[in-house]
Amino acid sequence: MLKSSEIPKQHLIIFTRYPEPGKTKTRLIPTLGTLGAANLQRQMTEYTVSQVKELQKATDVSLEVRFTGGNLQLMQDWLGLSLVYQSQGEGDLGWRMRRSLFDAFQSGMEQVVIIGTDCPSVNSQILTKAFEQLHSFDLVLGPAIDGGYYLIGLRRLIPELFANIDWGTSQVLQQTVDIAVKLNVSHTYLSPLADIDLPEDLPIWEQIVNREIGVWVNGEAKI
């Protein structure tokens, strides 16, 4: 068994957006409306946070929420004062993830995992697996079925992984892996999972709500 001094400092970063109607989950607005799409964003973020809190019951992992939209006060009013919040800042997704990783490693973290809130199948077991894999690999990726990734984990900052990526396309995962191979970065994969971005993806969320969250009350998932 590892001594406490040998256990790496683990940090998990959630990337999310403040659920302002009309500015989040825009591809679902034709189906759900602006309020419905914002509510889905809110519910999936709350569920993701709940899964990280489950992870924290068993593992010493620090949590940080990197947000876009809204402001610190709105985030605290929404998700509470117990979480650490930081704006994602400027730049494309690659720059924002790179910045968050730089800050985490600079603060002394040794294993850092970033997830979004679009993939509600990410649970505490998957997160545990991601950190376990970082004992053996420099890079852990959770492939999304649409060709992106729902999770990236690193034990050192590798800036090249976040440059010259066609974010938001089906090429993201493959481009990232190609860079890792070129740099001889050891890497591994978690199970492929589906994001919820389009109307045809909504049954995935409904199944998770029915199985893990409980019941719908007034059209909202109660956690």
Rank of each mutant, 00 (worst) to 15 (best):
S5Y: 11
S5Q: 12
S5I: 03
E6K: 12
Q10M: 11
Q10P: 04
H11V: 10
H11D: 01
L12S: 07
L12G: 07
F15M: 10
T16I: 10
R17T: 12
Y18P: 00
E20Y: 15
E20G: 01
K23I: 10
T24G: 01
P30Y: 15
T34C: 10
L35N: 08
G36Y: 00
A38T: 11
N39P: 06
Q41I: 14
Q41D: 14
R42G: 00
R42H: 00
Q43L: 05
E46Y: 07
E46C: 14
Y47F: 12
T48P: 09
S50T: 04
V52M: 13
E54Y: 00
E54V: 12
Q56H: 05
K57N: 08
D60K: 15
V61N: 12
L63M: 12
R66S: 13
F67C: 12
T68R: 09
G69A: 11
G70E: 15
M75R: 09
M75D: 03
D77A: 05
D77Y: 04
D77P: 00
G80R: 15
S82A: 12
S82R: 10
S87H: 13
Q88I: 03
G89V: 05
G89Y: 09
E90W: 09
R98F: 11
L101D: 06
F102H: 12
F102Q: 02
D103I: 15
D103H: 12
D103A: 14
A104Y: 13
A104I: 12
Q106H: 05
M109V: 10
E110A: 14
Q111R: 07
V112R: 01
V113M: 14
I114G: 01
I115M: 02
T117S: 14
T117D: 13
T117N: 10
N123W: 07
N123E: 13
I126C: 07
I126H: 09
T128L: 14
A130F: 09
F131T: 01
E132K: 01
E132L: 08
L134Q: 06
H135S: 02
S136R: 09
F137M: 11
F137T: 00
D138C: 05
V140S: 11
V140Q: 11
L141H: 09
L141K: 07
G142P: 07
A144T: 03
Y149R: 00
Y150L: 08
L151W: 04
I152M: 15
L154R: 12
L154T: 13
R156L: 05
L157S: 07
P159C: 03
F162G: 04
A163K: 06
I165M: 00
T169S: 11
S170R: 05
Q171M: 09
I179P: 02
A180V: 13
V181Y: 10
K182H: 05
N184Q: 13
V185Y: 06
L190I: 05
L190P: 02
P192Y: 07
L193G: 00
A194G: 02
A194D: 02
D197P: 00
D197A: 00
L198G: 02
L198Y: 12
P199N: 07
P199G: 08
D201I: 06
I204A: 15
W205D: 02
Q207A: 13
E212G: 05
E212H: 14
V215I: 05
G219T: 14
E220T: 10
A221M: 00
I223C: 02
